[in-house]
Simulated assay, not measured.
Amino acid sequence: MNEYLMTQRDITAFARYLHTEERSAGTIEKYLRDVRAFACWMEGRAVVKEDAALWKAHLLGLGYAPVTINSMLAAVNSFFRFKGWEGVRVKFLKVQRRMFREAGRELSRDDYGRLLDTARKRGQERLALLMEAICGTGVRVSEVRYLTVEAALEGRAEVALKGKIRVILLPEKLCRKLLKYAKKQKIASGEIFLTGSGKGLSRRQIWAEMKRLCNHAGVEPSKVFPHNLRHLFAATFYRACRDIAHLADVLGHSSMETTRIYLLATGTEQREQLDRLGLIC
């Protein structure tokens, strides 16, 4: 019987495999973090099917949300598949499809406005424009690097990610703002959102700047992260066009089921809808 031992060499090879599969930097980082967490929990023991199931129970015991546990299991199962260890893959937790989004994580238009106003008042011009660019186009934070001087001049950005290429149209007003900022920063070509040393902003840097801003803006930190700007774009776009297929294309989703998640109402909104039914006498 083969012994399924996880080594650092295996994990390094898995990282290379994820790169060849053109997974996003954020996905690779998360998968490796979860695989290392499982390997640490195993403490050098050979993996058997019962171990993966016990780890799932262990995560439940620690209070992780089922959706989070499933995302961690997906990473570990991907590693097992890479190694050819099909016999030790673990089943996901069965989670009922969510019917609404928690209000504590819902970024409203008012919250967004306060974040922009606060960033500008604090002289954080780059952060304010970056948030506008994400929220005004629906790009992923990993796609910010495609917002270049050339894209602003053409009014469109060509994004190549996850093995797909799509064109993102840029609002005219945003293009003017991007070009004005680039000129001020003496950026003649290429990426617009750069660090002081001229490198592209990382996902972690953008996340950290937004988190620091939320306290000054009086917005709950649980609502403030780059992907929530994309959610706000999706909800606003859908209210304007009522075309989920078109929205899926704009967001770069291969499945409209993914897009549907972006359009979940908050629990408060759903409760108001129930009240309007008038079925409680």
Rank of each mutant, 00 (worst) to 15 (best):
16 R>Y: 13
40 C>I: 14
20 T>L: 15
52 A>W: 01
71 S>K: 11
96 Q>P: 11
11 I>W: 04
108 S>A: 02
35 V>Q: 06
13 A>L: 10
35 V>S: 10
37 A>I: 07
87 G>F: 06
21 E>N: 08
104 G>S: 10
121 K>P: 09
55 W>E: 02
64 Y>N: 06
48 V>H: 15
82 F>Y: 09
13 A>M: 12
94 K>E: 00
70 N>F: 06
97 R>G: 01
107 L>Y: 12
22 E>I: 02
116 L>D: 08
105 R>V: 07
55 W>S: 00
74 A>W: 02
53 A>E: 04
44 G>D: 00
41 W>Q: 12
33 R>Y: 12
38 F>M: 09
39 A>K: 09
20 T>M: 15
98 R>P: 02
41 W>V: 07
30 K>D: 05
55 W>M: 09
109 R>I: 08
31 Y>R: 03
20 T>N: 15
64 Y>S: 06
95 V>S: 04
88 V>I: 08
24 S>W: 07
19 H>P: 02
57 A>Y: 14
75 A>N: 11
21 E>M: 06
47 V>W: 01
113 G>E: 01
16 R>N: 13
102 E>Q: 02
39 A>D: 06
16 R>E: 10
88 V>H: 01
112 Y>I: 00
77 N>F: 03
75 A>H: 04
9 R>T: 15
107 L>A: 07
52 A>N: 08
8 Q>H: 14
21 E>R: 14
111 D>E: 02
40 C>K: 12
96 Q>M: 02
104 G>L: 09
111 D>H: 11
113 G>V: 00
113 G>F: 05
19 H>G: 15
14 F>M: 09
107 L>K: 11
24 S>F: 09
105 R>P: 01
108 S>N: 09
114 R>D: 11
76 V>H: 04
43 E>M: 05
68 T>A: 10
105 R>H: 00
21 E>C: 11
97 R>W: 08
50 E>T: 14
38 F>V: 08
47 V>T: 01
74 A>S: 13
94 K>I: 04
50 E>L: 13
85 W>V: 01
64 Y>E: 05
11 I>K: 11
33 R>K: 13
111 D>I: 05
94 K>N: 11
46 A>R: 09
112 Y>W: 12
24 S>V: 03
112 Y>K: 13
54 L>V: 14
16 R>P: 12
109 R>G: 01
42 M>Q: 05
7 T>D: 07
74 A>L: 01
83 K>L: 03
28 I>P: 00
11 I>H: 04
37 A>N: 07
113 G>H: 12
66 P>C: 04
93 L>T: 00
96 Q>G: 08
34 D>I: 05
61 G>D: 00
26 G>S: 14
96 Q>K: 05
121 K>A: 15
61 G>T: 03
31 Y>C: 07
33 R>W: 12
88 V>W: 07
25 A>R: 01
27 T>H: 08
60 L>V: 04
104 G>F: 13
35 V>N: 00
115 L>M: 02
85 W>Q: 05
9 R>W: 12
117 D>E: 15
28 I>R: 00
110 D>M: 03
8 Q>K: 15
115 L>S: 00
